[in-house]
Protein backbone atom coordinates (compact mmCIF):
# COMPACT_ATOMS: atom_id res chain seq x y z
CA UNK A 1 0.00 0.00 0.00
CA UNK A 2 1.43 3.39 -0.99
CA UNK A 3 1.82 6.01 1.68
CA UNK A 4 0.52 8.62 -0.74
CA UNK A 5 -1.06 8.07 -4.09
CA UNK A 6 -1.79 11.10 -6.23
CA UNK A 7 -3.82 10.41 -9.36
CA UNK A 8 -4.52 12.93 -12.12
CA UNK A 9 -4.69 15.82 -9.72
CA UNK A 10 -5.39 19.26 -11.17
CA UNK A 11 -6.13 22.42 -9.30
CA UNK A 12 -7.51 25.62 -10.66
CA UNK A 13 -8.11 28.41 -8.16
CA UNK A 14 -11.04 30.76 -8.35
CA UNK A 15 -9.94 33.52 -10.64
CA UNK A 16 -8.46 31.07 -13.10
CA UNK A 17 -4.94 30.38 -11.76
CA UNK A 18 -4.01 26.90 -12.94
CA UNK A 19 -1.80 25.82 -10.06
CA UNK A 20 -1.48 22.11 -10.89
CA UNK A 21 -2.14 20.03 -13.96
CA UNK A 22 -2.35 16.25 -14.13
CA UNK A 23 -0.11 15.35 -11.27
CA UNK A 24 0.56 11.64 -10.83
CA UNK A 25 2.79 10.51 -8.02
CA UNK A 26 3.13 7.38 -5.91
CA UNK A 27 5.02 7.64 -2.64
CA UNK A 28 5.90 4.39 -0.88
CA UNK A 29 5.98 3.79 2.85
CA UNK A 30 9.20 4.97 4.55
CA UNK A 31 10.19 7.16 1.63
CA UNK A 32 11.59 10.65 2.09
CA UNK A 33 10.37 12.55 -0.93
CA UNK A 34 11.26 16.16 -1.67
CA UNK A 35 9.22 18.37 -3.96
CA UNK A 36 11.39 21.01 -5.57
CA UNK A 37 10.53 23.61 -8.17
CA UNK A 38 10.42 27.31 -8.87
CA UNK A 39 8.39 29.47 -6.59
CA UNK A 40 4.72 29.44 -7.54
CA UNK A 41 4.84 26.02 -9.26
CA UNK A 42 2.28 24.59 -6.87
CA UNK A 43 4.37 22.72 -4.30
CA UNK A 44 2.42 24.07 -1.33
CA UNK A 45 -0.84 23.56 -3.18
CA UNK A 46 0.02 19.91 -3.82
CA UNK A 47 1.00 19.37 -0.20
CA UNK A 48 -2.22 20.95 1.02
CA UNK A 49 -4.24 18.75 -1.31
CA UNK A 50 -2.51 15.67 0.12
CA UNK A 51 -3.41 16.92 3.59
CA UNK A 52 -7.01 17.61 2.52
CA UNK A 53 -6.62 21.22 3.55
CA UNK A 54 -7.92 22.17 0.11
CA UNK A 55 -9.65 20.08 -2.53
CA UNK A 56 -8.35 19.34 -6.00
CA UNK A 57 -10.44 20.52 -8.94
CA UNK A 58 -10.15 17.03 -10.39
CA UNK A 59 -8.35 13.81 -9.60
CA UNK A 60 -7.89 12.13 -6.26
CA UNK A 61 -5.49 11.47 -3.43
CA UNK A 62 -5.28 8.53 -1.10
CA UNK A 63 -3.15 8.38 2.02
CA UNK A 64 -2.38 4.93 3.41
CA UNK A 65 -5.02 3.56 1.05
CA UNK A 66 -7.73 5.89 2.37
CA UNK A 67 -9.26 8.97 0.79
CA UNK A 68 -7.37 12.08 1.95
CA UNK A 69 -10.32 13.31 4.02
CA UNK A 70 -10.54 10.04 5.92
CA UNK A 71 -6.80 10.13 6.53
CA UNK A 72 -7.07 13.64 7.93
CA UNK A 73 -9.87 12.61 10.27
CA UNK A 74 -7.83 9.59 11.36
CA UNK A 75 -4.84 11.84 12.19
CA UNK A 76 -2.70 9.98 9.70
CA UNK A 77 -0.42 12.91 9.03
CA UNK A 78 1.33 15.73 10.83
CA UNK A 79 2.12 18.97 9.08
CA UNK A 80 4.91 21.52 9.47
CA UNK A 81 4.66 24.89 7.77
CA UNK A 82 7.33 27.39 6.83
CA UNK A 83 6.35 29.48 9.86
CA UNK A 84 6.20 27.50 13.08
CA UNK A 85 2.54 28.50 13.65
CA UNK A 86 2.79 28.10 17.41
CA UNK A 87 -0.01 29.40 19.60
CA UNK A 88 1.76 32.04 21.62
CA UNK A 89 -0.58 31.85 24.63
CA UNK A 90 0.46 28.24 25.11
CA UNK A 91 3.78 27.14 26.52
CA UNK A 92 6.09 25.05 24.38
CA UNK A 93 4.90 21.92 26.17
CA UNK A 94 1.25 22.76 25.65
CA UNK A 95 1.86 23.54 21.99
CA UNK A 96 3.36 20.11 21.52
CA UNK A 97 0.44 18.61 23.42
CA UNK A 98 -2.20 20.38 21.31
CA UNK A 99 -2.86 17.52 18.86
CA UNK A 100 -2.83 15.05 21.76
CA UNK A 101 -5.43 17.13 23.58
CA UNK A 102 -7.64 17.14 20.51
CA UNK A 103 -7.21 13.40 20.16
CA UNK A 104 -8.40 12.95 23.74
CA UNK A 105 -5.21 11.69 25.39
CA UNK A 106 -5.31 11.95 29.17
CA UNK A 107 -3.06 14.36 31.03
CA UNK A 108 -0.46 11.82 32.20
CA UNK A 109 -0.01 10.26 28.83
CA UNK A 110 0.22 13.72 27.28
CA UNK A 111 2.90 14.98 29.60
CA UNK A 112 4.91 11.80 29.22
CA UNK A 113 4.79 12.10 25.44
CA UNK A 114 5.64 15.80 25.55
CA UNK A 115 8.78 14.98 27.55
CA UNK A 116 9.80 12.38 24.99
CA UNK A 117 9.25 14.90 22.20
CA UNK A 118 11.24 17.61 23.96
CA UNK A 119 14.11 15.13 24.22
CA UNK A 120 13.73 14.14 20.60
CA UNK A 121 14.09 17.69 19.33
CA UNK A 122 16.64 18.53 22.03
CA UNK A 123 14.59 21.14 23.80
CA UNK A 124 14.54 19.55 27.22
CA UNK A 125 14.08 22.28 29.80
CA UNK A 126 12.21 24.61 27.48
CA UNK A 127 8.75 23.11 28.02
CA UNK A 128 7.55 25.95 30.22
CA UNK A 129 8.82 28.71 27.95
CA UNK A 130 6.51 30.61 25.68
CA UNK A 131 7.21 30.52 21.93
CA UNK A 132 8.35 34.12 21.69
CA UNK A 133 11.15 33.37 24.11
CA UNK A 134 12.75 30.95 21.65
CA UNK A 135 14.88 31.52 18.55
CA UNK A 136 13.43 30.79 15.09
CA UNK A 137 15.23 27.46 14.85
CA UNK A 138 13.99 26.36 18.27
CA UNK A 139 10.44 27.37 17.38
CA UNK A 140 10.59 25.28 14.24
CA UNK A 141 11.79 22.29 16.29
CA UNK A 142 8.77 22.75 18.54
CA UNK A 143 6.58 22.70 15.47
CA UNK A 144 8.23 19.46 14.33
CA UNK A 145 7.78 17.95 17.77
CA UNK A 146 4.11 18.89 17.65
CA UNK A 147 3.70 17.25 14.24
CA UNK A 148 5.43 14.07 15.44
CA UNK A 149 3.80 13.92 18.87
CA UNK A 150 0.91 11.69 17.88
CA UNK A 151 3.18 9.45 15.82
CA UNK A 152 1.60 10.05 12.43
CA UNK A 153 2.46 7.69 9.60
CA UNK A 154 3.03 10.62 7.27
CA UNK A 155 4.82 13.91 7.81
CA UNK A 156 4.09 16.80 5.44
CA UNK A 157 6.64 19.61 5.57
CA UNK A 158 6.30 22.82 3.59
CA UNK A 159 9.69 24.55 3.43
CA UNK A 160 10.10 24.05 7.17
CA UNK A 161 13.64 25.45 7.22
CA UNK A 162 13.18 28.07 4.52
CA UNK A 163 13.26 30.98 6.94
CA UNK A 164 16.34 29.82 8.84
CA UNK A 165 20.01 30.64 8.35
CA UNK A 166 22.23 28.14 6.57
CA UNK A 167 23.96 26.84 9.71
CA UNK A 168 20.75 26.20 11.56
CA UNK A 169 19.24 24.66 8.47
CA UNK A 170 22.04 22.13 8.08
CA UNK A 171 21.87 21.19 11.71
CA UNK A 172 18.11 20.70 11.54
CA UNK A 173 18.51 18.69 8.31
CA UNK A 174 20.72 16.23 10.16
CA UNK A 175 18.32 16.18 13.07
CA UNK A 176 15.34 15.54 10.81
CA UNK A 177 17.11 12.58 9.20
CA UNK A 178 17.85 11.13 12.61
CA UNK A 179 14.19 11.51 13.59
CA UNK A 180 13.01 10.00 10.33
CA UNK A 181 15.31 7.02 10.79
CA UNK A 182 14.15 6.49 14.34
CA UNK A 183 10.51 6.52 13.30
CA UNK A 184 8.41 4.53 10.90
CA UNK A 185 7.17 7.53 9.05
CA UNK A 186 7.07 8.70 5.46
CA UNK A 187 8.05 12.28 4.78
CA UNK A 188 6.95 14.60 1.97
CA UNK A 189 9.17 17.64 2.09
CA UNK A 190 8.87 20.84 0.08
CA UNK A 191 11.99 22.90 -0.48
CA UNK A 192 13.55 25.20 -2.99
CA UNK A 193 17.08 24.32 -1.95
CA UNK A 194 18.76 21.77 -4.23
CA UNK A 195 21.34 20.84 -1.59
CA UNK A 196 18.67 20.25 1.02
CA UNK A 197 16.57 18.11 -1.32
CA UNK A 198 19.50 15.91 -2.33
CA UNK A 199 20.90 15.56 1.16
CA UNK A 200 17.61 14.54 2.76
CA UNK A 201 15.69 12.56 0.22
CA UNK A 202 15.36 9.06 -1.09
CA UNK A 203 13.70 10.62 -4.13
CA UNK A 204 13.43 14.14 -5.51
CA UNK A 205 10.38 15.23 -7.46
CA UNK A 206 11.24 18.12 -9.76
CA UNK A 207 8.32 20.32 -10.69
CA UNK A 208 7.92 22.94 -13.38
CA UNK A 209 5.56 25.86 -13.37
CA UNK A 210 2.62 27.40 -15.19
CA UNK A 211 0.85 25.12 -14.84
CA UNK A 212 2.56 23.06 -12.14
CA UNK A 213 3.60 19.62 -13.39
CA UNK A 214 6.00 16.91 -12.36
CA UNK A 215 8.89 17.20 -14.77
CA UNK A 216 11.29 14.59 -13.41
CA UNK A 217 11.67 11.98 -10.67
CA UNK A 218 15.23 11.55 -9.46
CA UNK A 219 16.01 8.66 -7.07
CA UNK A 220 18.76 9.62 -4.63
CA UNK A 221 21.01 6.61 -4.15
CA UNK A 222 23.35 8.14 -1.56
CA UNK A 223 24.03 5.67 1.22
CA UNK A 224 22.24 5.85 4.54
CA UNK A 225 22.72 7.10 7.16
CA UNK A 226 23.82 10.42 5.79
CA UNK A 227 26.25 12.72 7.52
CA UNK A 228 28.36 15.79 6.99
CA UNK A 229 30.58 13.64 4.77
CA UNK A 230 27.64 13.02 2.44
CA UNK A 231 27.72 16.65 1.43
CA UNK A 232 31.27 16.18 0.15
CA UNK A 233 30.61 12.93 -1.68
CA UNK A 234 31.17 13.30 -5.48
CA UNK A 235 27.88 11.48 -6.01
CA UNK A 236 26.16 14.26 -4.04
CA UNK A 237 27.39 16.78 -6.62
CA UNK A 238 26.36 14.58 -9.55
CA UNK A 239 22.85 14.30 -8.15
CA UNK A 240 22.67 18.00 -7.33
CA UNK A 241 23.69 18.78 -10.88
CA UNK A 242 21.04 16.42 -12.21
CA UNK A 243 18.39 18.16 -10.12
CA UNK A 244 19.58 21.58 -11.19
CA UNK A 245 19.50 20.60 -14.86
CA UNK A 246 16.04 19.17 -14.50
CA UNK A 247 14.93 22.45 -12.92
CA UNK A 248 16.37 24.44 -15.82
CA UNK A 249 14.81 22.13 -18.37
CA UNK A 250 11.49 22.71 -16.70
CA UNK A 251 12.00 26.37 -17.39
CA UNK A 252 11.16 29.35 -15.29
CA UNK A 253 13.83 28.58 -12.75
CA UNK A 254 15.51 31.92 -12.69
CA UNK A 255 16.90 31.59 -9.20
CA UNK A 256 20.57 32.56 -8.94
CA UNK A 257 22.98 29.79 -8.05
CA UNK A 258 23.69 31.37 -4.68
CA UNK A 259 20.10 30.73 -3.62
CA UNK A 260 20.32 27.00 -4.29
CA UNK A 261 22.50 26.47 -1.27
CA UNK A 262 25.32 25.08 -3.42
CA UNK A 263 27.37 28.23 -3.61
CA UNK A 264 29.77 27.15 -0.88
CA UNK A 265 31.89 24.16 -1.77
CA UNK A 266 30.36 23.72 -5.22
CA UNK A 267 33.47 24.97 -6.98
Amino acid sequence: MSAVSIKNVSKEFKGGTKALEDIDLEIEQREFVSLIGPSGCGKSTLLRIVGDLIEPTSGGVTVNGKPARQARHDHDYGIVFQDPVLYDWRTVARNIALPLELAGWDRNRRSQRVDEMLDLVELRGFGEHHPWQLSGGMQQRVSIARALSFDPALLLMDEPFGALDEMTRERLNAELLRIWQASESTIVFVTHSIAEAVFLSTRVVVMSSRPGRVSKLIPIDLSQPRSAATREDPRFFELATEVREALHMGGGYDMPLAATGLSEGAT
Binding site: R48, G51, L53, R72, H73, H75, Y77, G78, I79, F81, V85, L98, P99, L102, A103
Partner: peptide, 8 residues
Amino acid sequence: ELMRSYAA
Protein backbone atom coordinates in the same frame (compact mmCIF):
# COMPACT_ATOMS: atom_id res chain seq x y z
CA GLU B 1 -5.28 25.38 8.80
CA LEU B 2 -3.36 23.67 11.58
CA MET B 3 -6.63 23.03 13.41
CA ARG B 4 -8.12 21.72 10.19
CA SER B 5 -5.23 19.30 9.82
CA TYR B 6 -6.27 17.83 13.18
CA ALA B 7 -9.87 17.59 11.94
CA ALA B 8 -10.90 19.83 14.87
